[in-house]
Amino acid sequence: MCRLIGAVSRQPAAVRDLYADDLAPFLDLAEEHGDGWGLAVRVPNGTVQAVKEPERAHDGLRLRSLLDTSTTDAALLHLRMASPGLPVSAANTHPFGDREMAFAHNGDFAPVGVLDTVIGPDLLATADGETDSERFYLAVRRRTDDGLDPVKALIQAADDIRSSADRFASLNCLLLTAAGLYAYTEHDPRSEVISRRGEGYFGLHYRTTPDGRAVVASTGWAQPGPEWSALPERHVLEMTPGTLNLTVHGS
């Protein structure tokens, strides 16, 4: 299972400053979630730019450089723990996407091809890797290409998985577009991961800070204080850079 963190801000800043005090404890999770890292940022020309490597984040000289040199007001960062049987490779590393959007997932579902009919052969042919997570992205992308907004696209793709998959552990994900950052959370309480990790393992929490930032993140390090709010299951958190508007949408 992977870990996710996203942030938006009122003013562009280096990614390291965008995450501020949350960055170091999040990157410490790479000790366990060490099968790859991926960073996506919104760039000034209104597109999305992503960089990823199939290596532990602590070993990533490229990541260290990007944290200091990439300036943005919206970003997502993913630490991968590969599902059993899936190779550690660039093609299977998150985020997935292009210059319009970047998508990162924490969880798994089976069978991997359960969304293929929804995705369609044209988009399916663009898949680089073997993961269920990339299929989740392509199902979201199918819906946005068909005209849905990101909120509805995320909810409908999750509905497809829930109704058709034999099993799933978590559908937690982050989606970054030129307009903003979106977070979705849902897990199956019957998953064996919950029995091993504990009920709160798949929670997503978010907060705003006095210095003009908003952060959403997986669990795994101390997130103390009342400023952190839990994102309700089957809801999308929409985070708008610049205005720092946060909106929770129900399914």
Rank of each mutant, 00 (worst) to 15 (best):
G120T: 02
G120E: 04
G120H: 02
D122H: 06
D122C: 02
L123V: 12
L123M: 11
L124M: 06
L124F: 01
L124I: 01
A125E: 12
A125I: 03
A125V: 05
T126A: 11
T126W: 05
A127V: 01
A127M: 01
D128E: 14
D128Q: 13
G129T: 00
G129H: 00
G129N: 00
G129C: 03
G129F: 01
E130Q: 13
E130F: 05
E130N: 11
D132R: 08
S133H: 11
R135D: 05
R135P: 02
F136H: 13
F136T: 12
F136I: 14
Y137K: 12
Y137P: 09
L138K: 06
L138W: 08
L138G: 04
V140W: 00
V140G: 00
R141T: 01
R141P: 00
R141C: 01
R141D: 01
R141K: 15
R141I: 00
R141A: 03
R142Y: 02
R142S: 06
R142P: 00
R143E: 13
R143C: 07
R143G: 04
R143Y: 07
R143W: 06
T144H: 00
T144Q: 03
T144P: 00
D145F: 04
D145T: 06
D145E: 10
D145V: 09
D145G: 01
D146S: 11
D146P: 03
G147R: 08
L148G: 03
L148T: 06
L148D: 11
L148C: 05
P150M: 08
P150C: 12
P150L: 07
P150V: 07
P150S: 10
V151T: 15
V151A: 11
V151L: 10
V151F: 07
V151E: 09
K152Q: 14
K152R: 13
K152L: 12
A153M: 10
A153R: 03
L154I: 12
L154T: 09
L154E: 11
I155E: 11
Q156C: 07
Q156T: 13
A157F: 02
A158Q: 01
A158C: 15
D159H: 09
D159V: 12
D159F: 05
D159M: 09
D160T: 10
D160Q: 14
D160N: 07
D160G: 06
I161Q: 06
R162C: 14
R162P: 04
S163E: 15
S163T: 13
S163F: 09
S163A: 14
S164D: 09
S164I: 13
S164A: 15
D166L: 13
D166H: 09
R167Y: 10
R167V: 14
F168K: 05
F168I: 13
F168S: 04
F168R: 04
F168L: 14
A169W: 07
A169F: 13
A169V: 15
S170P: 09
S170A: 15
S170T: 15
L171Q: 02
L171H: 02
N172T: 08
C173A: 14
L174E: 05
L174A: 11
L174N: 05
